[in-house]
Design a protein around this nucleic acid. Structure first.
Lengths: 234, 234
DNA sequence: CGGTAAATTGACTGCTCTCAATTTACGTGG
DNA sequence: CCACGTAAATTGAGAGCAGTCAATTTACCG
């Protein structure tokens, strides 16, 4: 199996200004005073990732967490045949790599890959652990991050694994819209990704997606960007 | 919709001896000193529940958490049509009602119902919150409980929502075996429950379950108790 | 014993899978 | 710039699993 290099097409955007982060209220360190944060801030880096970039890989030793500010990430695991299963989609506010903060294992449980352009902050694992050791009174912040994953997992089951394929794909694109910058258009995932997400064949998916395009449910706005056309707009 | 009374067929078993609880190591308060626990202990009650008992109901105001020591619980939500969807199965070590500990909403997000006989401890929500406020240094204990739910959610997707129905049902019974007291026999859920768990019709499920019984894959050991007969045993 | 709900079974339909051929897209090297 | 190779997407044809509708049997309870 050829392993692409991690974090392809990544651009460094400097030390982030966490005190004014747009997602800060709903996200990591929402409750923290600036003084509690200061030691952490100096070690956090902000990056832009292109679609397809891999944030972390299942089984690799963990060094960092990634706090997602913009974009969508597929969070996937691999079965015995090496086939990917997407456990959930993660959007702004999600933190990737939480499993590595409890100290039992030191490697990532899943692979996280950008499905769109990303804006994410890389947090060194040691800095994160130190912060939590020094300020356990802010533990709720951590719990909220776990809750975020749990809600995404529940959403997967309810929206991507239930009912007819047609409906599951519509739900998928609705979620992608929600996670996009403008709330409408989104980078269309590959057939293989959709397959791993909704649990169907690429062939069946191709057929239905072609239908959507023919029927005008799915409208192409750009190179690989599409948007859903709701019934009200017709 | 007729609402059965909550906690039907519940028996009080007194104040539990948490310091010697069999699941304590893997469970709530695993790290806590006895002295930190003492204030909590006096308000915790241990109960036995019969299959079908409801621990908490979606939307009801939250008063307690339930720490599961023995048995299996279905954790379900209801869609627009009032149809149940089982999000996950919870076994020993799980704590039910975590969503209510963050303070935003005060009601249960899902309904938790016993699929087998249960041994569970009821923890007053206020006592739990006070403990965490006074001893935030033990926050990892809480995080582990959330992780437990997340792993159960991921298991649902991988085992109950993937592949052919036959396989999903086999996985279901394997999980039920794992959660049972003896590790083998289990209380067989109703067709409706299996339907809400694996995402199929009761009719389709009935057919396959009948097959399992005819082919000897599923062996009846008692009234409503069955066990899986693995290929090695044949 | 009767009434309701659940499970079982049959017949039929249809969605999705499988297999396969073709077309399109894309990166590489001449 | 084009030729080529590979991978992905598209489309067709056929089979099979699961859904739907419906009738019957069984289970359970007052």
């Amino acid at each position: 199996m050829s392993r692409k290099s991690i974090c392809t097409n990544r651009k460094w955007r400097g030390r982030p200004d966490c005190t004014h982060c747009v997602v800060r209220k709903s996200v990591l360190f929402a409750d923290l005073d600036v003084k509690d944060l200061s030691s952490l801030l100096s070690s956090v880096d902000n990056f832009q990732y292109e679609p397809g970039s891999i944030l972390c890989r299942q089984g690799d030793p963990a060094t960092s967490l990634y706090s997602l500010r913009k974009g969508v990430v597929k969070f996937e695991t691999f079965d015995d045949n090496g086939e990917a299963e997407i456990l959930r989609l993660l959007g702004p506010g999600a933190v990737i790599g939480l499993e590595t903060t409890l100290g039992e294992g030191r490697s990532y449980h899943c692979t996280a890959t950008a499905l769109s352009g990303l804006d994410a902050c890389r947090i060194p694992l040691v800095a994160f652990k130190r912060l939590m050791k020094e300020h356990p009174e802010h533990y709720k912040v951590i719990v909220i991050l776990w809750k975020h994953h749990l809600e995404a997992a529940d959403e997967s089951l309810l929206k991507f694994r239930r009912g007819e394929l047609r409906e599951r794909l519509l739900n998928t694109m609705t979620v992608l819209s929600r996670f996009s910058d403008d709330g409408h258009s989104f980078h269309l995932p590959s057939g293989k990704d959709l397959s791993a997400l909704v649990g169907a064949t690429t062939v069946a998916i191709s057929r239905i997606m072609a239908d959507f395009k023919r029927q005008g449910v799915l409208h192409q706005v750009d190179d690989n960007r599409y948007c859903l056309v709701t019934k009200e707009e017709l």
